[in-house]
Amino acid sequence: MNYGKRIFLWIVLFWIGSAQVFAEPFVQGGPIGSQTSDGYDALGPVVEQPIEFPHNTHAGRMQINCMYCHTYARRSNVSGIPRLDKCMGCHNLIEGVKDRPRIKKLFEYWENKQPIPWKKVHDLPDFVRFNHERHIQRFYFQEKRPVREVCGYCHGDIASMTTARRVKALSMGWCVSCHQKDHLEKAGSTVTSHGPNDCWLCHK
């Protein structure tokens, strides 16, 4: 291989490498079954929700913090699906949208005293334990990253979707790939540490 070719190869390699490193953190979730930005596939089944909940309005346009509705994320293993009265707490008072079909459906559930049968989108196998609290405490409260970014590591940019779709693989290799990276311990500090790699941290 001559000198020029070698230089060219290195340039190409560097370009590919840097494209990987500086890739956008959020990639719009493609159709289910397509590959994620990390090259993983198998994103789970398509989930039809009883109401097409517009995350893009609530988290996107209105800028409501994810943890306003998913309250348990910062103090429990599960993030929690909000109860119907959480929706009604606001929507009772928002006169402007009461005639919309989705809101009418919401009021129907409320008047029938029925909970909305939301379905799980990010469902992990039963032998896996994931703790929302530790991740939120570390990245949101300690590192003070924006909430859309913190939740987005695993859930993608939900604020650009209506009902949530799974855009990340949520496979073991994918979890470990982030646990092996160095993360800042606190906002403003330079001390880094990586996630624990003990089997029993996640396997139960």
Binding site: E133, R134, W200
Partner: peptide, 29 residues
């Protein structure tokens, strides 16, 4: 908090890891 094991799997005492883990996570926070 504990897997229900199915056929063909070995199992053993875990010192109640699910309890320890919940406690350790809470303490770490």
């Amino acid at each position: 908090d504990v897997t229900v094991r199915s056929k063909g799997v070995m199992e053993k005492c875990t010192f109640c890891m699910q309890r320890l883990r919940a406690g350790m996570d809470k303490a770490k926070t």
